[in-house]
Design a protein around this nucleic acid. Structure first.
Lengths: 129, 129
DNA sequence: TTGACAATACGAAAGTCTTCGTAATAGTCT
DNA sequence: AGACTATTACGAAGACTTTCGTATTGTCAA
């Protein structure tokens, strides 16, 4: 089964995807060890998750080796865009400034971050002319 | 039961909260009629959801009238902040510019929106000096 | 008072998510 | 070959979500 408009990953699936994005193609054990540094969970839990994700089509695996090697089907950027859009629509009715407002609210934001944000806006401003 | 650090609302709960924020205190029927304009669902479904939300503490109700009147416990702004932060952390590791980048990516953004975003940044820049 | 109607309460089914235990399998070493 | 180990496969429990049907309760009018 291979649907194009991939459904949004669950919380656990996202954690796994993040490991795969960071490490590139990885075995279950590699993902497991990475995740275990942050939270406690069993090896077979990770395995099962990866099997489910394979079935859903969010990852694919290479079975040439004894230990299968998994990788994300979508690049990080694509999935992140999807998740950002989802929140943008579901919570903020599409208003990017509302999203930004609430994301930044009551939070120290570094000069560096603010500069980067400004740079982004410049880029968009330029493009829309 | 009344926990302070309210857990994040589910998709359905958010839809109901949005109606309550927009309308102010409302009866089940009022929420039902509002929601039904966008999606098909039964009256008792909305009722049940509101009952569950009452138990969770995300809404409270006034039972003086025959038809109970529900209202959100948290103001919209608070919950929205929570959801924005959640995505910011879970998906973008806290980087606001990453969030913004993906939210805006490949999307027409009006001049008005861009101006508003810029205004927000000015405000933050001012505050952090 | 009783019938009709509107509202709430309750329970349960179906689906998804997360987690793990156990079984089966495949490779390795002696 | 046989024992040991690492890996995958499978199934299932428990929690949570969403949805709705049915029962109960309250209100009003005739």
């Amino acid at each position: 089964m291979n649907q194009e408009p991939l459904q949004k990953p669950t919380a656990s699936e996202l954690e796994i995807l993040r490991v795969l994005w960071a490490r590139g193609p990885s075995t279950v054990r590699e993902v497991y060890q990475e995740l275990r540094e942050r939270k406690s969970l069993g090896y077979t839990t990770v395995l099962k998750l990866l099997q489910i994700m394979t079935a859903k089509g969010s990852v694919r695996r290479n079975e040439e080796q004894r230990a299968h090697v998994y990788q994300a089907c979508q690049p990080a950027t694509e999935t992140k865009r999807q998740l950002a859009r989802d929140v943008l629509q579901r919570v903020f009715e599409g208003s990017a400034s509302e999203l930004m407002l609430h994301a930044l609210e009551g939070r120290r934001t570094s000069q560096k971050e603010l500069h980067e944000l400004r740079r982004l806006l410049d880029e968009y401003e330029g493009r829309s002319r």
